[in-house]
Computed example of a mutant assay.
Amino acid sequence: MVPPPPSRPPRHRAFDDLVAEGASVPTDGWDFSWFEGRATEARPSWGYARSMARRLVRASAVLEVQTGGGEVLDFALGAAGSRRSPLVVATEGWAPNVAKATRLLAPRGVPVVAVPDDAPLPFADGAFDLVVSRHPVQPHWDEVARVLAPGGTYFAQHVGPASVFELIEYFLGPLPQESRRRRHPELERSDAEAAGLEVVDLRAERLRMEFFDIGAVVHFLCKVVWMVPGFTVDAYLDRLRDLHERIEADGPFVAHSARHLFDVRKTAGANGA
């Protein structure tokens, strides 16, 4: 979502209007500009997209896994300019995003390959010296190791444990303790090392999020569908109305996202070497 605005936006719009607006906004891609003035999320200190751009300059063959609508890669390629690596390929598993990413990245000479998120990558062993990904559904470390050339790098920003759980548990109730361990960076470190990869750097941060109106909550849950599986306005109408009244009375609903940054190197003994 967009960075915090300079001042709090106006409130007191009708519940039905806000909900209808939030539900009507297209959900393809990972462009969160619609949330400007409606919701905010602090950014990680490491500046992932710009850091990716600097790596694009040094790489010779790049793969982005699960590109979404291609927005982050498009930004990084633009920042890298003519110094970018000559070969860049992206994958995506959701058909609407494949179409959107193709429209965005084709002018930059980047093909987008439709690959289900849980499928093997359709590329040769050691084909890339840089693999990047922002918020993959799940990192497939063996496949990353296989397609990386020896000495190559996986540079990615992952979603961390218990991300936005304040909002999720508002709708679903308390979640089992084991669900709070999923996506834990140290567990992912272990999985990466089991695939023969060396974790050069791993950083984690929790970041403040604010939802200023119920329309932003509705659009967020429609867009990020795994937050509240099966979410529909009708199914959660009473909880949405209660949350709307809470926001109107007390101000923004506050949650916290979890992010971690992986800088991983393939050693000569890694799988697929």
Rank of each mutant, 00 (worst) to 15 (best):
Q177S: 15
P44W: 02
P9V: 12
E143Q: 09
R43E: 15
A249I: 04
E193Y: 03
D191G: 02
D242K: 12
F231L: 06
A273M: 03
R181H: 11
L167S: 07
L240D: 02
L172T: 06
V88E: 01
R38L: 13
D238R: 15
A99H: 09
G70E: 10
R43S: 15
H219Q: 06
H260V: 00
G196A: 08
L240F: 07
V131F: 01
V225F: 14
R38E: 06
P3V: 00
T153D: 05
R208Q: 11
D142W: 00
L105T: 07
G160R: 08
D234W: 00
S24E: 06
W34Y: 12
G173L: 10
D213W: 08
V98E: 03
G109Y: 01
E21S: 07
R241G: 05
C222V: 04
G69P: 15
G93P: 01
W30G: 02
T232I: 10
V62G: 07
E169H: 09
P174W: 03
G151Y: 00
W30K: 02
R54A: 14
L207C: 12
I247V: 13
E169P: 13
G269R: 07
R54E: 15
F165T: 06
D234A: 15
T40D: 12
A90T: 07
P122A: 11
L240M: 09
A194R: 14
A95Q: 09
P176E: 01
L175F: 07
G70W: 13
A156G: 13
G69D: 08
P10Y: 10
V110R: 12
V217I: 14
A106K: 13
S133V: 11
W34I: 09
A145C: 01
L207M: 07
A156E: 00
V224G: 04
G215W: 03
V199S: 04
V228Q: 11
Q66W: 09
A59V: 06
N97F: 10
